[in-house]
């Protein structure tokens, strides 16, 4: 594996856990699956549909999201939004995220950029 490929695969590991946080952040506004995927993509959080859609279901089952069918438009779509419990979890995750970023910044302070 070239170092470029190694970076890619390790970066994927790093990003894996951030999808949940990104969803909880974006779904403050109700959104349906495909639109959420596009928004995430545009924000640089790359995720596959076959990962995202089951993930939304799981978060709903865990009580972090609520959902509602919107039948006003020509195509009925399921809209997800963050529940009060989801907001609390998001706050906790954000705190973890910032702690982690601080720790990594401190750890890498001495390392010159390659």
């Amino acid at each position: 594996m070239s170092s470029e490929e190694l970076i890619q695969s390790q970066a994927q590991e790093l990003r894996r856990g951030t999808v949940v946080l990104a969803c909880l952040a974006l779904l403050e506004q109700p959104q349906y699956g495909y639109a959420l995927l596009e928004t995430l993509d545009a924000a640089g959080v790359a995720v596959d549909g076959n990962t995202l859609y089951p993930l939304l279901r799981r978060l709903e089952k865990q009580g972090l999201l609520t959902s509602e069918w919107n039948t006003e438009e020509s195509r009925p779509r399921k809209f997800y939004r963050v529940s009060p419990e989801g907001s609390r979890v998001r706050a906790g995750l954000l705190r973890e995220w910032r702690d982690l970023a601080t720790s990594i910044a401190r750890l890498t302070k001495e390392i010159p950029p390659a």
Partner: peptide, 16 residues
């Protein structure tokens, strides 16, 4: 429920 959502999602993705 999953079937309905999956259909809508696939249709959305095909359109895009």
């Amino acid at each position: 429920d999953i079937a309905d959502e999956l259909r809508a999602t696939i249709a959305d993705t095909v359109e895009g």
